[in-house]
Design a protein around this nucleic acid. Structure first.
Length: 191
DNA sequence: AAGTAGATGTTCT
DNA sequence: GAACATCTACTTA
């Protein structure tokens, strides 16, 4: 009986804040490199801070597709950011992966990120994608198949999860849709 | 420890 | 043109 099992499409079929909270403690690997998700943010169509708020566009097309797929966008012209599409196709809901606790392929991540302390390897959405090698090449791919592996948190984990306002948004400032593992040293910022 | 500038591409007004 | 789900390097205390 494996302690971790791979998430299935049905696991992504819930409202964005529910999925965002459930993903804390899950493991994300891309080609075997990654770690434990310690910080996420939820976005959905009802929310002015979301890329999907104004409806489908060429960029956000994947967010209106099936749940359990990747929505990757370029942030500030420099960084890639990775989202997990959730809810149902057509709903424009997703979860931004903001930080991981590195567990696998740490040397690979160090090389991709330059000489940096482990704490900063995946502490921020742009850092996560750089460390895991995620780019627009992953746009729209299923999270339930290689190169992705998303493994559920151990069933017995009773981790304390904190919520607060999201980072870097100018709209929806008071929506407490940022979730983080209490006490983790690998958050992009304290909660 | 906290603040700022500058890098850059895509979308939207 | 402006804004942007950011990061790094560099300043100032």
């Amino acid at each position: 009986m494996p302690l971790h099992h791979r998430l299935r499409p049905a696991d992504f079929m819930a409202d964005a804040p529910v999925v965002a909270r459930a993903l804390i403690g899950a493991t994300l690997l891309v080609n075997g490199v990654g770690g434990i998700i310690v910080e996420t943010e939820a976005y959905d169509m009802s929310d002015a801070a979301s890329h999907t708020h104004r409806g489908p566009t060429p960029r956000n097309r994947a967010m209106f597709g099936p749940p359990g797929h990747a929505y990757v966008y370029r942030s500030y012209g420099l960084h890639w950011c990775l989202n997990f599409v959730c809810r149902e196709a057509g709903h424009g809901a997703g979860v931004l992966i903001r930080a991981l606790q590195p567990t696998q392929g740490i040397e690979t991540m160090r090389e991709r990120r330059g000489l940096h302390d482990e704490r900063l390897l995946c502490a921020g959405p742009g850092r996560v994608t750089q460390a895991l090698g995620v780019s627009d090449a992953h746009y729209g791919l299923a999270l339930t198949r290689p190169p992705f592996r998303v493994l559920a948190a151990p069933a017995d984990s009773a981790a304390l999860i904190l919520a607060g306002p999201r980072i870097g948004v100018s709209k929806g400032v008071d929506t407490p849709w940022r979730f983080g593992l209490a006490g983790s040293r690998y958050l992009s910022r304290r909660l």
